[in-house]
Simulated scan of single mutants.
Amino acid sequence: MSEDKYPSESGRRRFVKGVVGSAALSGVGVGGAATVDLATQPSGGGGGPTPYVGIQLLGGPAPRGMPYIPIELDDEGYIRGVWPEAETVTEAGRTYDVAETEIGGQTYSSEWFQYCGRQQAGGVVPSADQNNYFLSGSDPSYDWQAEELSEGDRLNIDHFSDYESWGNEIGDEGVGKPAEATWRSEGTEGVLPVTVIRSKRIEEKAQEGGEVGNWYSGASEQGLIAYLNVCTHFCCVPGYKTSSDAPNYNAENGVYCQCHQSRYDPFTPEFGTFTALPRPD
C-alpha cells in the first residue's frame, strides 16, 4: 500500500508498527538470527539467537511458546523465580552483561524474557537487584486468590494445597491450581506478569527422566511451575482457565490468548531457539 492507514502524527500508527515489528522479530528462526543480531544489537544490550524452554505452543498465530521461569522455595515455602548471577561478556567487540546458568540440562538466561518490549523492563537487566519472589497481582482472575491474598503478598506453596482438586468450572477439575503474579517489577518501569501453577502432571513428568524430566526436576518444585505470561504473537496477557471461550478452541485445560486465539500447554516444555531483542543501553 502506498498510503498509511494512520496519519503521520498518529501515536496509534507508531504503536502498531512497534509492536508488530517486535513480535515479528521475536519469532525469527535460527537461520536469519545472526543477521538480525548484527543489525540490532547495541553495545551492552545483549540479544540475538537464544536457546530457551517455554510452555508448548499448540496452535494459533503465536510463533513460539512463552518462556518458563525456573522456581525455588525458601525455608518457609515462599516461591521465587531463579535469577542467575550477572557476568560481563565480550562478543564481536561488544561488551555487555548477561545472567546465565545451567538448569535441568538447559542454558537458562535473562535473555529468555527479552521480547515484546520486556527487554526494556528494569527487572530484565541482568545486574538489577530485584525481589525474586512472586508477588500476588492486582485484580486477579481467580476467586481464591482475590479472597485470600492482597496485591504484593508473596505466593506460598500452602496457597496451592488443594491443587489436586481445584477447579473453577472451566475445563476439568484437578488439572492444576493457578495464581497470577508479578516478578522483579517493584519500583521499576515495565511489569513482568507471571502465571504460577501447581499440578500433579508436573510432579509426574519430573520423575520421567530424559530431556523433559530433567528440565522439570531442575526448574520446578513440588509440582510448581511458572512462566512469563506474555503471548509471543502480539504481546497480550493470556489466561490459564480464565476464559469461557477457551473450550471453543480446545484450550479449556491450557492457556488461551483471547486476543487472537493462540493456545499453549503449560505442562509440556518446548525446546527451541528465538531471537532475543537487545536491551537499551
Rank of each mutant, 00 (worst) to 15 (best):
G81C: 09
S26P: 06
A39K: 05
A62P: 05
G11S: 06
V82W: 05
D75H: 02
Y249I: 08
A128G: 13
S243P: 02
G104C: 11
I202D: 06
L155A: 01
V19C: 01
H260L: 04
T195Y: 00
G44R: 11
M1L: 02
V19T: 07
V191I: 15
E102Y: 05
Y240I: 08
R198L: 04
D158Q: 07
V191R: 13
S138H: 11
Q120K: 14
N132Q: 10
T195L: 10
S199W: 03
G18S: 10
E148T: 12
V82R: 11
A33N: 05
R154A: 01
Y6F: 14
P63S: 07
G46I: 08
L224Y: 07
E9P: 00
A146Y: 07
S243L: 02
S26L: 06
E111T: 14
E72T: 10
N131Q: 07
G48A: 06
G46A: 11
G210E: 07
N250K: 06
G223Q: 04
H260W: 02
G190L: 13
D153T: 04
Y216E: 11
Y227E: 01
L277S: 13
M1R: 03
I71C: 14
C236I: 01
C259H: 03
Q41S: 15
P67W: 00
K5T: 05
A121I: 06
Q222P: 00
E169M: 07
P61N: 04
F274M: 13
Y6V: 00
P247T: 06
G29H: 02
A219Y: 12
F267M: 00
P84Y: 07
S243I: 00
G213V: 14
F160W: 03
A92V: 10
G122Y: 08
T182I: 14
G105W: 02
E186H: 08
D74V: 03
F113I: 13
K177H: 00
P61T: 05
N214S: 15
P42T: 09
V237D: 06
D172A: 09
S161Y: 01
S22A: 15
P280H: 11
W215A: 10
E211T: 15
K205I: 13
C235M: 09
S220M: 10
D129F: 06
E3T: 14
V230F: 02
S22F: 08
R184N: 15
T275H: 13
R118C: 09
A276F: 10
A219E: 11
L38E: 09
A39V: 10
C231W: 05
C257Y: 00
I103L: 10
L228E: 01
Y264W: 13
G122F: 11
V30Q: 13
